[in-house]
Nucleic acid binder design. Structure first.
Length: 645
RNA sequence: GCCGUUGUAGCUCAGUGGUAGAGCACUUCCUUGGUAAGGAAGAGGUCGUGAGUUCAAUUCUCAUCAACGGCUCCA
């Protein structure tokens, strides 16, 4: 007999060789129907695998991450079975679960798969699922496994086998499909009740663009149809708040083939938002002791050789223009320009920290396939600033920048983000990162300490640092789930040296400063793209392109409407009148759809008493109010940058 | 850049080997209406671009550009 301990602390005895499924059945039939996979001594196991020694046991269902992962991984095998049935001889790489669903990477050989095939594959999968085929685990000797895949001519599985230890190699079979697989799997295909294959994509083998491109098929499955319907519905809803859709609907920005890929044309509505953001940035930065500067959009080649950008990032810069034997580049970053301003006049420790800020226009030649609405573009306007400081000042200054982020995020109500401490990768020193191993470790620790002392939760990720130093990135997700860096706060120990920047310290000796690069509001492009999705187009009043729409009941009240408009204009409120000869219902509908925060209905009653009927976007009629009182309220709401309630 | 999909009116989308249609938007007229679509008429497109096949191409083929879904990349 063996002892099995459960998460609640209970210990029960079973015969050696008992399976997790047997145990589940001994607890209740209901549980046995729901359980998908087991946790045995913190390892995830097949339910059917015999347990032969004292163990702790957890039973995972669809409600557990382990349950979902196993379910989706088993679904990937089911998809592979369907694909093999339709295209015999294709070779499989790996088929892991994802946060939502799964994929399988396949070498289709000469076969071609189109989106029309997906429906057919789904049908086949449903058929196979209904057969309730068990996922059967078999252990194999490495030599036998190699033999098996050599005969099959499957170089992909042979590649996987290279890294596996003998005695650790398992195959799984369900129906007619057998795959090299670590497992575990759900008991049988019958659990998979709802199937949707989402899309076909190319994916480089092992994620390296120098390798062959495999075909990747994404799918998702559920144990009940209703959950699939809900998931697909959720995807549809997410598309509705996609910034590209909202950006068009609300006339924020446009793009044009004659201008070029990734080059944003900001329309009047978008420009209002840009100007409000810049106003906020300027106020905040002035309060924090920054000075503003302006620098050109181009510079000579030598500048980027000095900064070290060119060797690392030439591919991401627009090709140079040659004039009078000089090469001029469009700037992809503002830092070197700012360094030249720092260096223009001698600095003393009394000048430090020296902070200069600019909404800098940068051009980056992003690969065409990477461009994505406002989130990834080729011309961007960066909320940039550089802080030149002493080593002693660094922690305080770096923390002040972090506090600035948090202050901004509070204004915008940004709560769903992850702070990422982005570090260098020691293996890529000298290639992707300047070769200063000790300075890396030292500055990385400085940044880490700032985060720890400020009690800000963060994750550390190797290989995400800038080439000149570690950084803190604020990661956010777009409506359709893509991850982006919204804002960044970076340390730079490399450029001060390459630009030979220095200040005179208290001992009258030259000293090299540290630089903090920071962009808490990121770029206008990405930030506004994010805000569109964050607010679902319903901007708070201070940011709204149009703040007030006056809706006269009929054109008899146009004069009164104009009087109100003048009053609001005097208070710098962005206001328009809907002068069309349309019914009030239609005027309201269109103002609602345009996400105008305040609609003012004016007719006979209002004109007689010098009042307004206020309607708030999405909230309906808010009743009558005196004109002066409304003006006072909205001015306060705007100047305090209040969020929508 | 690579794999796949798509490209018809300002927008959302039908459709066809014989030079095109709907709804909304737009213009004009009627209506002066009180909290999410009043009515009528009209105007608007060489069907992304270029080439090929054909008596004839928006439709078929190829190329190209762009957008979209991924991969790679992201200072």
């Amino acid at each position: 007999m063996i002892n099995i301990s459960f998460p609640d602390g209970a210990v029960r005895q079973y015969e050696s060789g008992v399976s997790a499924m047997d145990i589940a059945k001994s607890i209740s039939e209901g549980l046995a129907r729901k359980v998908l996979v087991a946790g045995v001594n913190d390892e995830v196991w097949d339910l059917s695998r015999p347990i032969t020694q004292d163990s702790s046991l957890k039973l995972f269902t669809w409600n557990d991450a382990e349950g979902k992962n196993t379910f989706w991984h088993s679904s990937a095998h089911l998809m592979a079975e369907a694909i093999e049935a339709k295209f015999p001889g294709v070779k499989f790489w790996v088929g892991p679960p994802l946060e939502h669903g799964f994929y399988y990477d396949i070498d289709l050989g000469d076969n071609k798969i189109t989106e029309e095939d997906l429906a057919e594959l789904e049908k086949k999968m449903n058929e196979l699922a209904k057969q309730n085929n068990a996922y059967i685990r078999t252990e194999k000797a490495k030599a036998d496994a190699i033999q098996y895949f050599t005969t099959k001519g499957d170089e992909y599985k042979l590649d996987l086998l290279q890294n596996l230890e003998d005695g650790n190699i398992t195959f799984y079979t369900q129906g007619n499909f057998t795959d090299l697989c670590r497992g575990p799997h759900i008991p049988n295909t019958g659990f998979i009740k709802a199937i949707k294959l989402l899309n076909i994509a190319g994916a480089y083998w092992k994620g390296d663009e120098k390798n062959k491109q495999l075909t990747r098929i994404y799918g998702i499955t559920f144990p009940v149809q209703k959950e699939l319907d809900e998931y697909l519905n959720m995807l549809e809803e997410a598309k509705k708040r996609d910034h590209r859709k909202l950006g068009k609907e609300l006339s924020i920005y446009t793009m044009n083939d004659d201008i070029g890929q990734g080059l944003i044309l900001w329309m009047p509505n978008g420009t209002v938002i840009i100007e409000e953001l810049e106003k906020l940035a300027k106020q905040t930065e002035e309060d924090a002791g920054y000075k503003r500067v302006v620098t050109p959009h181009i510079a000579k080649e030598n500048l980027y050789l000095t900064s070290g950008h060119l060797p690392y990032y030439a591919d991401s810069m627009f090709a140079p223009m040659e004039m009078d034997g000089e090469k001029y580049y469009l700037k992809a970053m503002n830092c070197p320009h700012h360094h030249k301003i720092f260096d223009a006049e001698p600095k003393s420790y009394r000048d430090m920290p020296y902070k200069i800020a600019e909404y800098g226009t940068c051009y980056r030649y992003e690969q065409s396939g990477e461009l994505f609405g406002l989130m990834r573009v080729r011309c961007l306007h960066m909320n940039d600033a550089h802080i030149y400081c002493t080593k002693e000042q660094f922690a305080q200054e770096f923390k002040a920048v972090n506090d600035l982020y948090l202050k901004y995020f509070k204004i915008f109500g940004i709560e769903k983000y992850v702070m990422r401490l982005s570090l260098h990768d020691p293996e890529k020193l000298g290639q992707k990162y300047v070769n200063e191993p000790e300075l890396w470790l030292e500055t990385e620790d400085m940044v880490r300490q700032v985060l720890i002392e400020a009690n800000i939760p963060f994750v550390e990720v190797k290989g995400e640092g800038a080439f000149y130093g570690p950084k803190i990135d604020v990661q956010i997700w777009s409506a359709i789930g893509r991850e982006f860096t919204l804002a960044t706060n970076q340390v730079d120990f490399a450029q001060p040296r390459s630009f030979k920047l220095s200040f005179t310290n208290q001992n009258n000796e030259p000293e090299i400063p540290l630089i903090i690069h920071r962009a808490p509001l990121g770029t206008h492009e990405r930030f506004i793209g994010f805000l569109l999705e964050h607010y679902a187009g319903k901007f708070p009043v201070w940011l709204a392109p149009l703040q007030v729409k006056i809706l006269p009941i009929s054109d008899k009240f146009l004069d009164y409407a104009h009087t109100i408009k003048q009053t609001l204009r005097k208070a710098s409120v962005r206001v328009e009148i809907d002068e069309r000869q349309e019914k009030i219902g239609k005027k309201i509908r269109e103002a609602e759809l345009a996400r105008v925060p305040y609609m003012l209905v004016v007719g006979e009653k209002e004109a007689a008493e010098n009042k307004l009927s206020v309607r708030r976007q999405g909230k309906g009629d808010a009743g009558q109010i005196a004109v002066d009182e409304f003006v006072q309220n909205i001015v306060e709401e705007i100047s305090e940058r209040k969020p929508l309630e």
